[in-house]
Design a protein around this nucleic acid. Sequence first.
DNA 1: ATTGACCTTAGAGTTAGCTCTAAGCTTATA
DNA 2: TATAAGCTTAGAGCTAACTCTAAGGTCAAT
Lengths: 153, 153
Amino acid sequence: MDFGVENMLKISELSQQTGLSAHTLRYYEKHGLINASNRSEAGYRFYTDSDVRRVQFVKTARNTGFSLADIGQLLSIRVDKLSHSCQDVTDITQKKLLEVNAKLAELQSMQQTLELLLESCCGGPENATHCSIMEALDAGLSREDKNEARLIK
Amino acid sequence: MDFGVENMLKISELSQQTGLSAHTLRYYEKHGLINASNRSEAGYRFYTDSDVRRVQFVKTARNTGFSLADIGQLLSIRVDKLSHSCQDVTDITQKKLLEVNAKLAELQSMQQTLELLLESCCGGPENATHCSIMEALDAGLSREDKNEARLIK
DNA sequence: ATTGACCTTAGAGTTAGCTCTAAGCTTATA
DNA sequence: TATAAGCTTAGAGCTAACTCTAAGGTCAAT
Ligand SMILES: [Zn+2]
Ligand SMILES: [Zn+2]
Ligand SMILES: [Zn+2]
Ligand SMILES: [Zn+2]
């Protein structure tokens, strides 16, 4: 009856293999991303090799930056590749790249502003009455002025 | 008695001037960042010029990437510059820059991975049975392998 | 006097992705 | 057999920064 239970993993073993916590694995299951193909009579989850590969796919996609919703889509492609095209895959990937690029631009702008602020300030122990960082934040930064210009007209 | 009420702003007027919603302004007040120096008899908030400048400082700092907690610290320096040093200011700014740099590195890694994935896939209408993006996610990406290597030993 | 726009408050809901708790079984070891 | 470690579930809590709702008071114009 219970043929092949030996090479299946319990949740803590899967956790160790993947580096994802048991909590997270159950969370992914609750959200429809993964599943344990088998359960013991007591209800313990048992993961097959195929289950493990699916979890590793999820982890890899997660590390690549995909949201759990994205991963849900990628997984439905994965289980039925015949019904999906390469374009379906690139659409998801391209969308993610655009998001990443947008965040990058925002962070680069912040980085530049912060570096300029740090260059302008002595960083010394004297009091901050004439601190150029405080002055700059009080004056409204030039980057922000540009954004403001959009709103005015 | 109510001298000078004329040049004060109601919350919706401040909202228009700053581009922050009235909800957000009340939220900032609840969290101790800003305040209306005066209230009408009915309890309406009235903002002085000084209040407005403080709100604009908050907005500028927010646009620069500072968290509301950071801004709370910057504001307490702002109201008592004599008791604080330039170093106090650069400490906050430097810490923020480090955070931004860390996020940048993460996003740049994602960007690179996503670009490589997109280069490898034809993106065409044929079915996804041999899609190289799916293969790469199944195999575990090389970037991830590097991270894994850290864990192994 | 009656709209309707604006203001007040406390507090709930949103987002994403976990992270943890409580209460109670199960399993392995001593 | 007792103890500890591990498993189960539902559901609460966390983070940050809003965003919105409900129920009601205020104000200007008609
Ligand atoms: Zn200085
Ligand atoms: Zn300074
Ligand atoms: Zn293809
Ligand atoms: Zn492809």
